[in-house]
Design a protein around this nucleic acid. Structure first.
Lengths: 338, 338
DNA sequence: TTTCAGCACTCTCGGCCGGAGAGTGCTAAC
DNA sequence: GTTAGCACTCTCCGGCCGAGAGTGCTGAAA
């Protein structure tokens, strides 16, 4: 596409992003192209509309980017917006003061992301195929009731009440926990499975069985931690003035399964993914764009971070800030040995 | 007030609750009072309006209950609606299958409450003045970095990364944990404080200090767990058609401090509290009603459960279901020895 | 060939009007 | 105390109109 067409498309996207009002040839002329006449701009706009990048709400309204228009913009025209120091500092600060466990971290990251992008955010916890067990602990609740505490990588605590077939005192449990730690702590989950296979019948095997059950749930991702935040930011946008639109988006966000699917799509894909309007698999995200990236403390452990907003979002700002948050969170997680 | 006036007020509230449309004398006559003429009903309606219980959006519209009207209704006219078996079973089921720790429990309870009342819900974790420590565990992360794991009443796990002044091996930490458990596990938090005072300088005192810090945060309630759910239910109501109304409510719900205040108000008060429209301290809850009750495993440990919806809510149903959820949750928590 | 001034045209938006409909309050009779 | 009847008020909705914004087209200038 000729340079001038590109420039005009870029200008339309930028203008519409901030004003939320269809942009006309006159506005473009006075604000972006003073040495062009509005008539010339009009003919370029008509061309861009023919190419499918722009559309008009009605015959005599200004132009609005189509989904393809946004697509062209993010693919070819967008340059990352520098992040103000204030915002950088804010991100650093929020991430550094986050709790040291994955759950707290993910929640904080989602909150921060929503705050700095002024949109809704989603975040899934970094997760790998084989979980590592850092520590096991057993607490006696009743003679035949044991609380199993499992510390996984990411300082992720998991607990489960286990009703055992035989009674055990706390002292016995403490000894047993020590034995379990010696054999499986610091190892990947398959170690626990191996020990389970070879263990003789008894309390130890019983508890190992439950350890494996917890690991299974965790590794299968059926309990994959996915949080979202910042829906309030969407309410400010004119696109979401009637709350039925919000309702649809909220449904998607609360439907954890859908988000998990988004996650799986991304893993293995390029590291930044932008899904615009009708490109979304869910029709409830019509008019919405989703910007996704992966993050995590290592290559093995990856989660997804995403921003959800109207297609009329400030893509260059969103992408820059999303990546900044992802970088901060990844660094911090690596630092914590998560 | 005469019986007939009461009956008419009740009918107006009931009718408006379901239809969301101002109710006129004719509708009342055909649906509730076939042997009265609409003229008679009109004069009663006029009286009720004079008394401040009803109002009209405009001269020739039907009547709508005022906040005082709702107040009179819930104070004198409401009788609890029986809960269908299906709903009862649902509540039981959700609560029974909830995680065995307080956090998971509270989240599940909020979800269930939102679901069965078709409104937004809030829940705070049961909390008492003196926390009990069930178990302490120490995990070595780095030579001079320890993960302190604290199991409090309610199977509430708290963790904190502690940077110690002196290095310690996992074996040393395990021994130390055993000693700490012997001295403070199963006791109230003041025991930990006493031990801290009398402990000689060293790793043990250092870690006890952190234990106390964690307890402090917990007991001060500055980290009091408050969750909310079901905002999507509000979006269905005509009162929240323009999303700016939702925005205000969301602000309140996300403002944990405000909810904590609500909680404190309720503690020591009667066991059911209904706050209607302008009775709310926050003007952002104009047009909203909040129904609150306390719950918890014991007299000492109490949290708050609440429903937030438009003032035009089905109070009798809401109250009945709220109490049912509170009862189920309390029972389950007591059963788990939370 | 590109640019541009001029102009007719189209469409929305806001205000205004008027009729239909809903619901009221009042009055006079039972 | 109750009720039929009636005038009155107000909203809602559709149609109408003028202002304004913005377009597409055309013919001339560069």
């Amino acid at each position: 596409m000729e340079n001038r067409k590109q420039a005009i498309l870029r200008a339309v996207v930028q203008e519409f992003t901030t004003s939320a009002v269809p942009v006309g040839s006159q506005a473009l002329q006075t604000r972006y192209f003073v040495n062009l006449s509005s008539a010339t701009i009009r003919s370029e706009l008509a061309d861009l509309a023919d190419l499918g990048y722009l559309t008009q709400p009605h015959t005599s309204a200004g132009r609005v980017p189509t989904d393809s228009g946004y697509r062209y913009f993010v693919d070819f025209l967008m340059d990352l917006e520098p992040i103000p120091d204030r915002v950088k500092a804010y991100i650093q600060d929020e991430v550094r003061t986050a709790p040291a466990d994955v759950e707290g971290m993910v929640e904080r990251v989602a909150m921060t992301l929503a705050e700095v992008t002024r949109n809704a955010s989603v975040a899934s916890a970094p997760q790998g195929a084989l979980a590592r067990i850092k520590h096991v602990d057993l607490v006696s609740l009743e003679p035949k009731e044991v609380l199993l505490i499992l510390l996984l990588e990411g300082n992720l605590l998991r607990q489960q009440v286990v009703n055992t077939t035989q009674p055990a005192t706390q002292a016995q449990l403490t000894r047993l926990a020590a034995r379990l730690n010696a054999s499986i702590a610091g190892r990947a989950s398959d170690e626990a499975r191996r020990h389970y296979e070879s263990a003789p019948l008894g309390l130890e095997k019983e508890l190992l069985g439950r350890v494996i059950a917890v690991l299974d749930v965790y590794e299968k991702g059926s309990e994959n931690l996915v949080v979202h935040d910042g829906v309030r930011n969407l309410l400010r946008q004119p696109e979401f003035a009637e709350s039925s639109r919000v309702h649809q988006v909220l449904e998607v966000l609360e439907e954890t399964r859908y988000l998990t699917v988004l996650l799986r799509q991304l893993i293995g894909d390029s590291d930044l993914q932008i899904v615009i309007g009708s490109e979304n698999t869910s029709s409830r995200l019509q008019g919405c764009a989703v910007v996704l990236t992966s993050y995590g403390p290592s290559e093995r452990l990856k989660g997804v971070l995403g921003v959800v907003g109207p297609t009329r979002m400030a893509y260059s700002q969103t992408v820059a800030r999303l990546q900044a948050v992802a970088r901060s969170a990844s660094d911090r997680m690596a630092e914590l040995g998560v």
